[in-house]
């Protein structure tokens, strides 16, 4: 017996409005391909360039709890700001973030990362220095590589000290696209 899209949607909406969802997610289209986006009541928890949700759900459950449910409404705010960003109408995100389950060093690096302005770039070493660990450039690189909320936490703005773009977990093409959008390159 097939559950009609209408009934399915009704249930998902009700679940979110009754605050019964630990992590809501949906797939959002963007110029850098479909994005998997997940948010809890606390805020945006994850963005992934891998749009196949099934691979992500266990991870979300470990972060926020087992009540992981697809629901467009949970990620409405993020979707809107991402759309504006990709249209060139937004330079900073105004979203609360859910950084649960991340190690303290990661959180401190991400808090500095989010202050790197639109249209500018920094280096792994400079970011390491800003969190008081000037020799931890490599560790900062690892944090960037594992960044749970790319784009909004702008790891694409971090480049090598020689100006080399180095790499990007989502693929170098995407890093280039984002930096071009922001007018950095």
């Amino acid at each position: 017996m097939t559950v009609s899209p209408n009934l399915d949607q009704r249930f998902r909406e009700a679940a979110v409005s009754m605050a019964l969802v630990d992590m809501g997610f949906d797939v959002v289209s963007s110029p850098v391909g479909p994005l998997f986006v997940a948010a809890s009541e606390r805020g945006l928890a994850a963005i992934s360039f891998d749009p196949e949700p099934d691979a992500q759900l266990e991870r979300l459950a470990r972060i926020g709890g087992p009540r992981v449910l697809r629901s467009p409404r949970s990620v409405e705010g993020t979707r809107r700001e991402l759309d504006q960003y990709f249209e060139g109408k937004r330079r900073a995100f105004d979203l609360s973030l859910d950084l649960r389950a991340l190690p303290p060093f990661t959180v401190s690096v991400l808090r500095e990362l989010v202050r790197v302005p639109y249209g500018e770039t920094t280096t792994y070493g400079a970011l390491a220095a800003r969190v008081g660990r000037p020799r931890a450039a490599r560790a900062v690189g690892t944090v960037m590589n594992r960044n749970r909320i790319p784009i909004v936490l702008p790891c694409h703005r971090v480049v090598g000290s020689s100006g080399d773009l180095v790499g990007y977990a989502g693929g170098l093409d995407r890093k280039i696209t984002l930096l071009q959008l922001e007018g950095s390159i």
Binding site: P53, D54, V68, L69, R70
Partner: peptide
């Protein structure tokens, strides 16, 4: 293990 609710649903 308890599956994510989406899978259960």
């Amino acid at each position: 293990a308890i599956p994510p609710f989406e899978h259960f649903y």
